[in-house]
């Protein structure tokens, strides 16, 4: 039985919490993406400084 799948492209801007080190970033990002669907393909495309905080720009395709 084939599940009916949909694909959704998305671009997210997420503030990077100070308590999340780079070594924990992958798991944290997957949690954020999971709110929208199952991550199929994703990447950080930019890291920006805004008001002395860091922001992550993500581009992703998720399954819904």
């Amino acid at each position: 039985m084939q599940p009916e799948l949909g694909l959704q492209s998305m671009q997210l801007v997420l503030p990077w919490p100070d308590h999340i080190p780079c070594s924990a970033l992958r798991g944290w990002i997957r949690q954020q993406l999971a709110r929208h669907g199952e991550p199929l393909r994703w990447s950080i495309t930019a890291v920006e400084s805004v008001d002395q905080t860091r922001q992550l720009r993500l581009e992703a395709v998720v399954l819904q």
Partner: peptide, 18 residues
């Protein structure tokens, strides 16, 4: 994507998986 990176989808994932 906004970065200029290539992305894409297919209209019928189920047909691919079948």
């Amino acid at each position: 994507g906004a970065s200029g990176a290539s992305s894409g989808r297919i209209a019928a994932p189920g047909t691919l998986l079948r």
